[in-house]
Design a protein around this nucleic acid. Structure first.
Length: 554
RNA sequence: UGGGGUGUAGCCAAGUGGUAAGGCAACGGCCUUUGGAGCCGUCAUUCCCAGGUUCGAAUCCUGGCACCCCAGCCA
């Protein structure tokens, strides 16, 4: 895929020209295993792995696992699965920040010996008080000038577990008056008697992000350390650690994270949606998680296309979810097998069609790709069509079935509606009586007669019953921000249809297989699907010109 | 009010002193046995605003304005 140029690629091109890293390009994708990956991560994955691929470099997968309280093995597994599924590979370059705990500890000792780090006994609250504010400088901790020997001793005893949680920290000695709050003696280590998903109980002090990240990049000889905008303020600290340690120095570059309309992207909120039961889990098809999108029916190709189309820049932006949907349609239009499925069936009896006859009619599997071939579909006297494709009192420009009107049944005959049967009590239409024109069979010499509309159908006798889940956006509001974001959750984001009728060729469909239900949209087989009990997810609708016409009343 | 960023169409986004790419959306039209797909066309005399430099400015300079991020022992 021809990845577009962007400002990061410009920087890399320049570095290549000046031979800054002797021709190497080495990136990394560094998720914290504290949740499932979402489409914002997909952007970052495509960026980092895409650059590596494009420049014939490498991209590491590194778990930023420095906070045992929030991290779990389940997440490290799901993350690997998602990155692979997206189409990327880290070969033997799977790393963990926790792999470097010992090395990081030694680096810290080095800084202490250099007089650039100290053990501080201030409590979290006191540290906050000493930090100052945005406009006022902070004050030095009274522990700032401990001797190197005392710092070394205390730090070692921190590691040994002599102090309770929060009792002491190791801090970098930088500048409490810096206008950049990140430089006001940031914490490098905190005491945390917690079991880590990989190192178990080996450690009771854990490095902070700032202390672990740059040094991990350095150890892995990363050239371009790409992260999101909120870390721009951390860059001076990133550089400071590397410079004081005098070790290999990668370059941090920040880009704007992805925001999408009608959804939330923060891991915290996604976790809450899961824990508070608004969705069925991290992989609920309404979630913007990679696993949710996968279950919904999004393909790796469509997500990569999306990443490419939205570009990479430094300005905060919110991408219209319609852009995402279009990427799926774009991909699936070329590949998805077309089938007929009736979501809300209404029975049709062709009165002049013989009772016991079943015809096999030929249908094209994909008009975009002749190599996908054709199949036979059964036609008989009793059919189902979509409720929506009949109107007793048709509005203007309605090209479908109505009393006395003609419509073509896709790949079959032109029929005319002769009678409407209704439930006497409710007035609901229960059955349509029609006649067909035997001369109009698709493919036959006389089939060229034109009618305005063509609708899909399924033969009643041979159709399979299926469950179809229709999804709508998870939120009613374009930008559900703020503390009351839950108020904008769309209560109708899921509609389950249990009486759908689908064509027999779908009998063997397996989870994650994708189809186009003609005239309706793209549908994927859900993981809940069982033989005899098929379940489909509507991944995305087709563009619906009629819906637009009807809505605007033109 | 300190520091760091960002302002180009409804939404993304190119553009790096030579006269505003592309995509999504929208709107017309053609075509169509999916109201799908495809095809054609329309959609910024103007780039946050105001000055200035220049033959020429979205690009350079000056001054404003708006929005985002930072006061976790989260990442």
């Amino acid at each position: 895929m021809p990845e577009r140029k962007n400002f990061i690629r410009d920087i890399i091109d320049e570095d290549l020209k000046t031979n800054k890293y002797s021709g190497r390009v080495h990136t990394r994708f560094p998720p914290e295993p504290n949740g499932y990956l979402h489409i914002g991560h997909a952007k970052s994955i495509c960026l980092n792995f895409g650059i590596a691929r494009n420049y014939k470099g490498f991209c590491n997968l590194r778990f930023d696992d420095t906070n045992p309280i929030k991290e779990e093995q389940e997440y490290v597994e799901s993350i690997q699965k998602d990155v692979r599924w997206l189409g990327f590979d880290w070969d033997d370059r799977l790393f963990y920040a926790s792999d470097y705990f010992e090395q990081l500890y030694e680096f810290a000792v080095r800084l202490i010996k250099k007089g650039k780090a100290y053990v501080c006994d201030l409590t979290a609250d006191e540290v906050r008080e000493h930090r100052g504010t945005l406009t006022e400088p902070g004050r030095d901790s009274q522990y700032r000038n401990r001797s190197i020997e005392e710092n070394l001793d205390l730090f070692e005893r921190m590691r040994k577990g002599e102090f309770p949680n929060g009792a002491r920290t190791l801090r970098a000695k930088i500048d409490m008056a810096s206008p950049n709050l990140n430089m006001r003696d940031p914490v490098m280590y905190r005491v945390l008697h917690a079991s880590h998903h990989r190192t178990g109980d080996k450690w009771c002090i854990y490095p902070t992000y700032d202390w672990a990240h740059g040094q991990s990049d350095s150890l892995e000889k990363i050239t371009h350390s790409i992260c999101t905008l909120e870390f721009a303020d951390h860059r001076p600290l990133y550089d400071w650690f590397l410079d004081e340690l005098e070790i290999y120095h990668p370059q941090q570059i920040e880009f704007a994270r992805l925001n999408l309309t009608y959804t939330v992207m923060s891991k915290r909120k996604l976790l809450q949606l899961v824990e508070e039961g608004y969705v069925g889990g991290w992989n609920d098809p309404r979630m913007p998680t990679i696993s949710g999108l996968r279950r919904r029916g999004y393909t790796p190709e469509s997500l990569r296309l999306f990443a490419d189309r939205i570009g990479v820049a430094r300005s905060e932006s919110t991408v219209d979810v319609a852009m995402l949907e279009d990427c799926l349609r774009d991909d699936l239009n070329k590949r998805a097998r077309r089938v007929m499925a009736v979501l809300r069936p209404i029975k049709v009896v062709i009165e002049n069609y013989p009772e016991q006859v079943v015809e096999d009619l030929e249908a094209v599997n994909n008009p975009e790709d002749a190599s996908m071939g054709v199949r036979k579909i059964p036609f008989s006297r009793t059919l189902y069509i979509e409720k929506d494709d009949f109107r007793e009192d048709p509005p203007k420009k309605y090209f479908r079935l109505s009393p006395g009107a003609e419509v073509r049944l896709r790949y079959a005959y032109i029929i005319k509606c002769t009678d409407v049967m209704k439930d006497e009590k409710t007035g609901e239409v229960t059955e349509l009586r029609c006649t067909y024109d035997p001369e109009t069979r698709s493919g036959s010499p006389q089939s060229s007669r034109k009618v305005k509309g063509t609708i899909h159908w399924v033969s009643a006798q041979q159709a399979i019953k299926a469950e179809v889940r229709l999804y709508d956006r998870l939120f009613n509001m374009e930008n559900p921000g703020g503390d009351n974001w839950r108020d904008f959750i769309n209560p109708k984001s899921l509609e389950v249809l249990n009486e759908c009728k689908i064509e027999g060729s779908l009998e063997k469909a397996r989870p994650e297989e994708l189809f186009q239900f003609e005239r309706l949209g793209y549908f994927s087989v859900d993981t809940d699907s069982r033989p005899g009990n098929p379940v489909f997810n509507r991944s995305v609708t087709l563009r619906d010109t009629w819906a637009k016409i009807e809505k605007t009343g033109t």
